[in-house]
Design a binder for these strands. Structure first.
Length: 111
DNA sequence: TGAGTGACTGTAA
DNA sequence: CTTACAGCCACTC
């Protein structure tokens, strides 16, 4: 299983209405500084991966990929109940509360 | 084998 | 507040 597939497997586990940061995804996969690689992986994510539940460390949408436009990511998150700081903002309101808290131990304990 | 490439991040000015 | 920059690491050619 290559790194990309591991990213997809983890992102698929993110609960509805919650988000992870690129850095946390990388850390949970055992690569504390692999945030950029996570972005690279999501660039080509399969359709069944909730790619929109991954944002940068500031809680902002940072996609530039035409296949996954920021407006779409924002709309998908809003549809799951995630609120933004303003109607025209790409920054998540109450980011710490929306962030999915998952320790490496809990991840290992998952089925 | 080695250089180039990012949907990143933390530090510094 | 902002811009700049240097690490970072898997993947591709």
């Amino acid at each position: 299983m290559n790194f990309n597939e591991r990213v997809y497997a983890l992102v698929r586990r993110i609960p509805r209405g919650k988000v992870l940061t690129y850095g946390r995804v990388a850390a949970l996969l055992g690569v504390p500084r692999g945030a950029r690689v996570v972005g690279w992986a999501l660039h080509g994510a399969p359709a069944d991966v909730p790619w929109h539940r991954v944002v940068n460390a500031k809680g902002c949408i940072s996609t530039r990929c035409p296949e996954h436009p920021p407006q779409l990511q924002r709309a998908l998150l809003v549809a799951e109940g995630v609120r933004f700081k303003a109607d025209d903002s790409f920054e998540i309101a109450d980011f710490p509360e929306v962030l999915w808290l998952l320790t490496p131990e809990e991840l290992a304990a998952l089925p």
